[in-house]
Simulated scan of single mutants.
Amino acid sequence: MLIVLHWILVVLIVAASLVSVTFSFKSRRSSDGRMRGIYAARMNMSMGAMLILVAVFMMLAYSGSTVKVIIGALFIVLGLFNLFAGMRNHSVYTAMK
């Protein structure tokens, strides 16, 4: 059962990183400032989700040493910050006309 959970997390991490790269390319290629901001916000949200998933995978896959728990907690905090900053920026840019 734990092996299946690990594989599900790996697939979700890969999917989130691919979505993040896609929105990064779209953000850099967009000429419209509003769409650039929306794509950057979506990239931040997917990167935050990816960081949270990496932290969960790291905490489940390896034995709990102090350093790994601290690094996992930092990844979770950084991921939550990216997720909420992306959500805030997405709402600001979608409200623009």
Rank of each mutant, 00 (worst) to 15 (best):
V19H: 09
A15E: 09
S46E: 12
F57D: 02
N44A: 14
V77G: 08
A40S: 15
V56I: 15
L83P: 08
M96E: 03
G37A: 15
F81E: 09
R29W: 07
V54S: 01
V11F: 03
A49M: 13
G37M: 09
G64Q: 11
V4A: 14
S91F: 01
T66D: 13
I70T: 13
V77W: 03
R88C: 06
I3P: 04
R34G: 01
V21K: 12
N44T: 11
L83T: 04
V69E: 09
T94D: 01
K97H: 14
I76W: 01
M35F: 14
W7V: 03
R88H: 12
A61C: 00
S46F: 15
T66S: 10
F84H: 04
I70V: 15
K97T: 13
L2W: 03
G64N: 10
M96A: 12
I76F: 06
T94H: 00
F84P: 07
M87C: 02
N89D: 13
S63V: 05
S27L: 03
L5G: 03
L9Y: 08
L80H: 01
R34T: 13
L83A: 13
V10L: 01
S63H: 12
G33W: 14
A85K: 09
R36L: 13
A73R: 12
L60G: 01
K97W: 05
L9C: 01
V92H: 12
A55C: 03
V21P: 05
L74G: 07
A61F: 08
S30G: 03
V19N: 08
G79F: 03
A61M: 14
S91Y: 00
I13H: 11
S46Q: 07
L53P: 06
M35I: 05
I71T: 12
V56R: 04
G37S: 09
I13N: 01
V92L: 07
F23N: 08
K68Q: 15
T66Y: 04
L18V: 04
I38F: 02
G86I: 07
M50V: 09
M1C: 10
V54F: 06
H90C: 01
V92A: 02
F23V: 06
V77A: 15
T66A: 12
I70K: 13
V77R: 07
V10P: 01
M59A: 14
I8S: 05
Y39L: 12
M96F: 06
H6F: 01
V56N: 03
V77K: 02
M58L: 14
K68E: 08
L80N: 07
G48K: 00
S20E: 15
R34Y: 02
T66M: 10
A55L: 05
